[in-house]
Write a protein that binds this DNA or RNA. Structure first.
Lengths: 216, 216
DNA sequence: TTGTATTTTTAGACAAGTCTAAAAAAATTA
DNA sequence: TAATTTTTTTAGACTTGTCTAAAAATACAA
C-alpha cells in the first residue's frame, strides 16, 4: 500500500501534529534523523498522493486520508507492543524497536485478529491508547507530574519519553503503570519532586516529573 | 543485518539448492519473478559478502554463512505461519503472503520467544519442518502420492505446491494434514489416482498426486 | 567441429530515497 | 525598513535494486 519511508513520515507528522497543528520541515527532519532536503522531497510525494496538505515554506498537516493511515500505523505498533509484553514476556523497555519493524506488516486482517486474540486491549504497555479497528481511541487526559499541585494523588498511567534508558530508570524505582502516588513537595531550588508511594518517600528530578504522566 | 532483497535471494537459492546442488541465474530469476540481469547484479553483491560461492557462468551455491541465514529465514517464516494458523485461526491457504512479510522482522530473540510461546512446534501448517534455534530440523522423508505403489497406505503429511488454489482444493476434498489414505488404483489412461479415505473413494489428478506428500 | 541456440553477463538507464552545497524565502533583529 | 539569521527548497549526485538491449560465454546439434 505505502512504502516504509512513507509510513514513517506519516507517523512522524502525526506525532508532531499533536503538539502543534502545523508541522515544519525541520521538525520532521529532527524526528526522523534525516536532512531537511530529504524531507522536502518526500513531502512533495506525500502531497501528490493526497496524504498531506503542503504548500512550499508553509509547513504541513495530514489530510483525512493521511491521518487514517497514520492512526492505523500507531494501532499496529501498539498492538504489537502489547503482544510482545503480554504474550512473549518482553519488558516494556525492550519492545519499541521490534514494534517499529512489525508495524509495517501490511495486513489489516492480521491486526484485527491479533487484537481479538489479545482481548481488544485499550492501552499499550506504556499506557498509550490503542486505536480500535475504526481508528477511534480515548484521548489521554493525563497530566505530567511536574504540572500538578502538591498533595495531589493519582495513578501512574503513561510516559512521554519512551526511551529504554527512561523506562529502565522507572522500573528500577518501581514507578510503573498502575502504581498510586502522592505528590508531597516540590523543592523550589531545582524543581525536584518528592513523591510518596507505598508509604515511602521518593525524589525524582524535574526531567523525570515532566515525562511521567498520572491520571488523577 | 541483511536487506529485504538479499534475504529473498538467499531464500530462493536455498530452495532451489534442494533440487540441484548448483543453482543457475535463470532459475533464480524465475523463482523471484525478476530478470536474469538483475540476478547477476545481486549475485555479485552476495558473493562479495561471502554469502554465496559464485563464479561467472558457473551458477551458485550457498556458503555455510549463507545457508545459516537462509535457514533462519525459513525458521522465521514457518514459525509465523504456525502462529497465524494456531493462534489467530487463519486457514492454511491464507498465511503464506503474511509470513512472507513477517519473516523479515530481524530480532532472533523475538523468534525464539515466539517459538517458546507456541511450545516449540516442529512442523508448520503445511507439514514443513521448522528449524530449531540452532538451525537443525528433520529432513522430510515424505513421498509424493504419484510415486507410491497401489495398496500403499499412509498419512497426508505435506505439500509441494503452497499456492492458495491448491491448498483450497485439498481443503475442499478433505485432503488435509494428518488424514489417513490408501492408494487404491492408478488409472493408466491419464494417471488419475484413486484413493480411499474414511472408506470412501476419491479421484485425484496426476498433478495433485505429484504435489501431495504422505508419510508411509 | 562448426554453426546455432540458449544462458549469462555487461552496459547504460531509471525510480526511490538519501545526501551536500547553494539559492531562495521567511523570520528576526537592529 | 534594512540587514542578518534561520528555514526551506532546489540542483545535482549517490546507492540500492531494478530494467532493456546488446555482447560474451556456454551448450547443443548437425
Amino acid at each position: 500500500m505505502h512504502t516504509l519511508a512513507e509510513e514513517n513520515y506519516l507517523k512522524a507528522i502525526y506525532k508532531l501534529s499533536l503538539i502543534a497543528e502545523n508541522v515544519s520541515t525541520n521538525q520532521i527532519a529532527a524526528e526522523l534523523a534525516t536532512k531537511a532536503s530529504s524531507v522536502t522531497d518526500m513531502l512533495r510525494k506525500l502531497a501528490d498522493k493526497l496524504l498531506i496538505n503542503y504548500t512550499r515554506y508553509q509547513g504541513v498537516s495530514l489530510t483525512q486520508t493521511g491521518e487514517k493511515v497514520a492512526v492505523n500505523i500507531i494501532r499496529r505498533h501498539r498492538l504489537w507492543e502489547y503482544f510482545l509484553v503480554e504474550k512473549l514476556h518482553f519488558k516494556w523497555d525492550e519492545v519499541h524497536e521490534m514494534a517499529e519493524e512489525m508495524e509495517h506488516i501490511s495486513s489489516n486482517e492480521l491486526i484485527d485478529r491479533l487484537d481479538e486474540f489479545m482481548g481488544f486491549p485499550t492501552r499499550d504497555p506504556h499506557g498509550d491508547p490503542i486505536p480500535d479497528c475504526n481508528g477511534n481511541f480515548k484521548t489521554n487526559d493525563l497530566k505530567a507530574i511536574s504540572t500538578v499541585d502538591v498533595n495531589t494523588c493519582g495513578i501512574i498511567s503513561g510516559v512521554r519519553d519512551h526511551s529504554s534508558a527512561f523506562l529502565q530508570y522507572l522500573e528500577k524505582q518501581g514507578l510503573t503503570i498502575g502504581k498510586k502516588i502522592t505528590i508531597k513537595e516540590i523543592i523550589t531550588y531545582d524543581n525536584t519532586v518528592v513523591l510518596q508511594m507505598n508509604n515511602k518517600d521518593l525524589q525524582i528530578s524535574r526531567d523525570v516529573a515532566n515525562n511521567l504522566l498520572i491520571a488523577l
